[in-house]
């Protein structure tokens, strides 16, 4: 089974040199820590920054320089700053190559729910609906099951939808899945996880073809 760092590490293997990438809050943010040496990835922060750098050194915090999670961050040589309309313009126009975000539920047709739990305080969708409606490639980082053990990879989302048919790939603590017209196609198992366990914990349609390799993360 993967912990959150393992999920981030596995997603980092999807990165390619020169990609413009938007990382959501939570596990997706951790992906930035595993960019392979020698590879240039430009991180987009939807509040208006391309080329997001690491957190500032203590004492160097700049209240004018934050990311979409409102954390103090830094810019890098080659960074650029723009307003929020241009930020979502580049997202909508498909210029951002990859979006990684978390989810409460994903359906086997690629629907995603990640913004609202009825009956609980609703904080808002932020930029999630814009991102999922437009991104060329969306990878979801998530726990496979909720705390009660119920599958979060479903036939149909039960929570309010964030976007329809948009998720391309899921990396959970149990495995890696492509979202295909036929359902979740199992590509890799997490270390120590069997195909049977994945079958038992996946409510949505699951495709298992041939031997499923255990994933390699270094």
């Amino acid at each position: 089974m993967l912990d959150k760092f393992g999920i981030a590490q596995r997603i980092a293997r999807e990165l390619k040199d020169g990609m413009y990438v938007n990382l959501g809050i939570g596990i997706p943010t951790l992906v930035a820590n595993y960019v392979p040496q020698g590879m240039t990835i430009i991180l987009q922060s939807e509040n208006g920054l391309l080329g997001m750098g690491p957190f500032p050194y203590e004492g160097d915090e700049d209240p004018d320089t934050i990311n979409a999670g409102k954390q103090t961050i830094t810019t890098l040589p080659g960074s650029s700053i723009f307003d929020s309309a241009m930020s979502f313009g580049m997202i909508r126009a498909g210029k951002v190559d990859l979006t990684v975000l978390g989810a409460m539920e994903v359906a086997d047709n690629g629907d995603i729910a990640n913004w609202k739990v009825p009956g609980k305080m609703v904080k808002g969708m932020g930029g999630a609906m814009d991102l999922v409606a437009s991104a060329k490639n969306i990878i979801v980082a998530m726990q496979h099951c909720d705390k009660a053990g119920n599958s979060k990879l479903l036939k149909k989302c039960s929570l309010p939808i964030t976007g329809l048919g948009c998720v391309k790939k899921v990396v959970s603590d149990l495995g890696v899945f492509d979202v295909t017209p036929e359902g979740f196609k199992l590509l890799e198992r997490a270390p120590g996880i069997s195909v049977d366990e994945i079958k038992a914990k996946t409510e949505g349609r699951l495709i298992v073809e041939g031997e499923i390799p255990e994933m390699k993360i270094n």
Binding site: Y57, D60, Q71
Partner: peptide, 12 residues
Amino acid sequence: EKRIEQRTVRKK
């Protein structure tokens, strides 16, 4: 005041 909502830093 320019208050910071989430002060995140790294150590030198």
